[in-house]
Design a protein around this nucleic acid. Sequence first.
DNA 1: AGGAAGATCTACT
DNA 2: GTAGATCTTCCTA
Length: 196
Amino acid sequence: MMTVEVFPLRFYEESPEIVAKNLLGKFLFKREDDAFLGGLIVETEAYYGFEDPASRAFGGIKNYNITMQEEPGRVFIYNVHKYWMLNIVAHGPNRIGAVLIRALQPTEGIEIMKRNRPVREITDLTTGPGKLTLALGIDKHLNGVPVTSSESQIFVANNNVKFEIGSSRRIGVKKDLNQNLRFFIKGNEFVSTKRE
DNA sequence: AGGAAGATCTACT
DNA sequence: GTAGATCTTCCTA
């Protein structure tokens, strides 16, 4: 693998919306023995705290969502409909928030990921929040792990690419806020849905 | 101990 | 476009 440049904690100490956009085009890697699984982040969604009816923190801090209000730059994982959702905690001081990783463009460990989640087309491998956690072998045990160190089992690394950012309402959300909080790389074929 | 909800996915029509 | 399957967690009793 190429040289790895991770981001410091302050990269994640911004509003979820800002971090959601800043994470696009960056690498996400998960360590698997001697191999790395992962790829480019091509689709994200921002979630806030008590004021966001779609947020896991809506209704109060509980055991299972406590990570959302703790230190930014850490993994926050919860379950929905049998699948694990991968988030990265992102918020200013004394706030609550996280960024949901919705889709990856696979670049590393593709063979292993295909074993974890057999598919015919590579465009089916990690093009959805539940799909990518299965392919990368991510579950609740990674909850709280910092993505700010390349020594972590899972981390985010820098990458310099140019692209246009598209946005839309969040996917699958019953009670959404009145603004676009889903962001994706325009024209990328690994975005989970064409909806804009 | 049981019921309900959910930021999903797949397979159909 | 929609129905149904499926799991983890929370709420009430």
